[in-house]
Structure formats: structure tokens, C-alpha cells
């Protein structure tokens, strides 16, 4: 797994995720990165990566909407000017 720091350089994070507990994709996977978003600007997040943790919060066992809420809140919070993603290139078999 790789720890990737994404600085909040744009008003939006700019990623689309698919997956979550009780679906064919057990952990959220990045399916799109939007041009001009913070994720695109950081250029380290890639389509296809599976997100294991966000700011130290594990997404394992979290359903899609819960995982999406955790990521959205980590981006919205004013406490930090960045987000830390723990990602892996491969599907974690659970």
C-alpha cells in the first residue's frame, strides 16, 4: 500500500469512486479523476487505485455511502489543508 498526500488546491477533490462493503468491489476504487480537481493537481492518485484508508480512517467494511461521506468530510474539514489516502493498486481480497 502507498500513502498519498493530496493538498486541497482546488474547490473540489475531483474523484469518482465505485465500491464499498456488500458489493462486487469491496473497497472504494477510483474510477475517474476530474481535470482541475485537487486530486488531478496532486497527480499521484490514479484511476484504478483502491482506497484503504483516508486520514487514518479505514474504509474496510464500510458501505459505499458511508465511505463516500468519510472522504467528503475529510475534504471539507478546515482543520487540515491536505488529505492522506492509503491506496493499493490491487483489489484486496476480503
Amino acid at each position: 500500500a502507498t500513502l498519498i498526500r493530496v493538498m486541497k488546491t482546488a474547490p473540489t477533490l475531483g474523484i469518482a469512486i465505485e465500491g464499498g462493503a456488500k458489493t462486487r468491489q469491496p473497497l472504494p476504487r477510483i474510477v475517474t479523476i476530474q481535470r482541475g480537481g485537487s486530486a488531478h493537481n496532486c497527480s499521484k492518485l490514479k484511476v484504478g487505485q483502491v482506497i484503504l484508508e483516508v486520514n487514518g480512517i479505514s474504509l474496510q467494511g464500510k458501505e459505499h455511502r458511508e465511505a463516500a461521506r468519510i472522504i467528503a468530510e475529510a475534504f471539507k474539514t478546515k482543520e487540515k489543508d491536505h488529505m492522506d489516502f492509503l491506496v493499493t493498486e490491487f483489489n484486496v481480497s476480503l
Binding site: 475531483g14 469512486i17 465505485e18 462486487r24 468491489q25 475517474t32 455511502r65 463516500a68
Partner: peptide, 16 residues
């Protein structure tokens, strides 16, 4: 586990 995953529903997609 392959069969199990095939019976699971596909996930929705959320833009963040």
C-alpha cells in the same frame, strides 16, 4: 469467493 462476489450487487458511483 469468486462466486460469492459475482452474486453481490454492483456498486453505485459517487463523484467527490
Amino acid at each position: 469467493s469468486c462466486d460469492k462476489r459475482l452474486t453481490l450487487p454492483p456498486s453505485e458511483i459517487t463523484l467527490l
